[in-house]
């Protein structure tokens, strides 16, 4: 503690720490600028996962990066129509419920337990 205090006392208040901090933050923002194709692919994957658990309104999905001062968050706004009682199997990954789903659903359930 004392050393820290002395260091602070004797230091000339270097600007390099400010530079490093600013760089780290600006780079989080820069690197979060992902391509539309990547965002599209992410959207497809997310719909695939979420529709296993609930019916959603895919036409009203909003996805974006939320930039705050020191951090970046990926925010997805997905309107839910109905929650499923049990998840659909992973393999289907589609947006539609398939008719033969019941059996595999229960299998999946036991598999998880």
């Amino acid at each position: 503690m004392a050393m820290e205090f002395l260091k602070k006392f004797f230091s000339r208040g270097g600007s390099k720490n400010t530079a490093k901090e600013r760089l780290q933050i600006v780079l989080i923002h820069d690197r979060a600028d992902i391509s539309p194709e990547m965002l599209d692919s992410l959207r497809r994957d997310m719909i695939g996962v979420i529709t296993r658990y609930m019916d959603i309104d895919t036409s009203k999905i909003e996805m974006d990066f939320d930039r705050e001062d020191r951090s970046v968050a990926f925010v997805a706004n997905i309107p839910v129509i109905r929650i499923k009682r049990t998840p659909l199997p992973e393999e289907t990954g589609g947006e539609k419920k398939d008719d033969g789903g019941k059996k595999t659903q229960s299998k999946r359930k036991t598999g998880r337990a």
Partner: peptide, 16 residues
């Protein structure tokens, strides 16, 4: 400038 803390050090740049 590095010595007086007013320029990014090599290690800072590599870190980033």
């Amino acid at each position: 400038l590095v010595r007086q803390g007013d320029m990014l050090e090599v290690s800072d740049v590599l870190d980033i």
